[in-house]
Design a protein around this nucleic acid. Sequence first.
DNA 1: TTACTAATCTGCAAGCGTTGTTGACTGGGA
DNA 2: TCCCAGTCAACAACGCTTGCAGATTAGTAA
Lengths: 148, 148
Amino acid sequence: MHSPEELTQRFRERGLKVTPQRQAVFRVLYQNHTHPSAETVYEQVAEQMPTISLRTVYQTLNDLTDMGEILHLDLGTGSARFDSNVEDAHHHLVCEGCGMVRDVEADLDSLKFNEALPTGFRVSETEILVRGLCEHCLAKDQHRMAEA
Amino acid sequence: MHSPEELTQRFRERGLKVTPQRQAVFRVLYQNHTHPSAETVYEQVAEQMPTISLRTVYQTLNDLTDMGEILHLDLGTGSARFDSNVEDAHHHLVCEGCGMVRDVEADLDSLKFNEALPTGFRVSETEILVRGLCEHCLAKDQHRMAEA
DNA sequence: TTACTAATCTGCAAGCGTTGTTGACTGGGA
DNA sequence: TCCCAGTCAACAACGCTTGCAGATTAGTAA
Ligand SMILES: [Mn+2]
Ligand SMILES: [Mn+2]
Ligand SMILES: [Zn+2]
Ligand SMILES: [Zn+2]
């Protein structure tokens, strides 16, 4: 995504207004690269601006997604995750225990499909998702197994 | 998944009862390879058994998933999709217009990651998802563009 | 066959993430 | 400074899925 200052310009160009609420969302997203959920963004913005509503956070996230400034990810963790890194094509690794998400770079060109895609199908995106358990959650699980 | 007859055995071995409702769900899943949603399974079962409840379909789908007889897929289409093919490792292609899902086989071994995964991370599954528009939905979209 | 009981059924309420609505408010161009 | 399109906060509603409870039933053992 662009910097909060640049986003101000781009919002105005689109006829969108730049409010303190939106600027606060810009700042949180610009510095948070952990693929936060809307709820997480809301909590972080609310620390500085306790009166903001979750609805406003959703609205701003949707606007940014429409403008291509952030990515809306559905990683099967229950809630959508938002990615401020749209510059570098990349994929994701997700912990099924705690929902932690990390970027993964893979060479998509090396991927070979064993058959042709359906006739006329237009691919918009090929996504690789690595699911598993992070070190922390794995230890927790083993501890749970031991006592059971 | 196993055949409806074999599933009867496996359910009983687990202390689960085999009811007409469950058998009807078994049969629908056994012959439907389109990755149906719970709602779709419900509709197809309801044709033969109009009194079955959606809740019972969900319960049976969950039991089958727990037993490893089917796969519960989250492809970002709004509702979960269920896959009766657990024998052959494969991936999926999904139309973002109509939700159509098709199997895709790819050589995962050919996939190269550009960096190591996080320390201690245990991968349970690496999934490839091809998103796009099917021939039908693409034509619909172009028609919409033309008249706008 | 019969009797018993744990498992299951249906219908409805509730949970969760997200979006719709509405009336009051305000950013920012003129 | 004015003015109004755009935005805000609060709350309701939506779509998918699960929780709950009382009535019913599958399947075992006698
Ligand atoms: Mn990312
Ligand atoms: Mn499949
Ligand atoms: Zn974890
Ligand atoms: Zn389609």
